[in-house]
Design a protein around this nucleic acid. Structure first.
Lengths: 149, 149
DNA sequence: GTTGATGCAAAGCATTTGCAATATC
DNA sequence: GATATTGCAAATGCTTTGCATCAAC
């Protein structure tokens, strides 16, 4: 277990709890995939994760990577987010800590931000239009410092 | 020419100009597709437009609908927007009049809104992170009045 | 009669699914 | 040993593309 994953014992615990609670099985591919997922920084995309796993010498199918990611999503442990280019990224869910993304169109880098004022304004807008909000998506696209020629 | 399209002469003019400027041809399928596009209200999706066109007794391929929509997009006459469910919608571009969307997860209805304060806050955030913004996307998902059981 | 446009079917892309083989409980 | 899981390939849904045929200039 690496430095990185060591601090994420809660994640493994929550996953174990979810698995037994749903009589799902603890398999070695799930362990491998999850540990690579945790080793990658935030904003993991399925293809990249798959390549990392394969690169580590494990012969696991892409479908299993997707299935595992979906499992984590169902368990409420990760959030899925899809960007304008069609790819989806997964990140460890930090309940109550909502944030939005700033995506660099040059290098693909993703930064996060939170803004309470914006959230408030969104609620106000929904209220005015008589919508009951379930979620929202705010992505800012632009060039990060190092991609501004 | 219907009521609806009559008021959109500028659209046809701009399209004609674009076509000749790029030595592209004025075809009957383009005319048909565009007139159906203009007849549909805002937020047109390719599949729906295709069905309308076919419903009108025209045998035009789906690919041509997509090609025409992309042409309009290249001409700067329509904007494309894609929602969380993967479908894309096209709408007449109203330069300078940026707006965001409120999407009903129940019936698929789409409302629009603009909020200068939010735009301003976005600019502020980008500035703080040293990003040069190129675009953004803000979608609010929820249930509209008639979908609140 | 060039050159661009169309229709169709095939290809892409990211993701999901069916199914027989296999690992976990 | 029952049942969930895997790997693979095939299927998906939306959109694009290749190509021979056809229409616009």
């Amino acid at each position: 277990m690496t430095e990185n994953t060591k601090s994420l014992v809660w994640f493994w615990d929550a996953l174990d709890a979810y698995l037994s609670r749903h009589q799902l099985k603890q398999t070695k591919q799930r362990k491998i995939i999850v540990s690579y997922f945790l080793k990658l920084s935030k904003h993991v995309d399925a293809e990249v994760l798959y390549r990392k796993v394969r690169g580590g010498g494990n012969k696991i199918g892409l479908a299993t990577v997707y299935r595992t990611l979906n499992l984590l999503k169902d368990a409420g442990l990760v959030d899925q987010h899809s960007f304008a280019d069609g790819r989806a990224i997964f990140e460890i869910s930090r309940p109550g800590m909502h944030h939005d993304h700033l995506v660099c169109v040059g290098c693909g880098r993703i930064d996060e931000f939170e803004n309470a004022e914006i959230e408030l304004l969104q609620k106000k807008i929904a209220l005015e239009r008589a919508y009951v909000l379930t979620s929202h998506r705010l992505d800012l696209y632009g060039r990060c410092k190092s991609c501004q020629t």
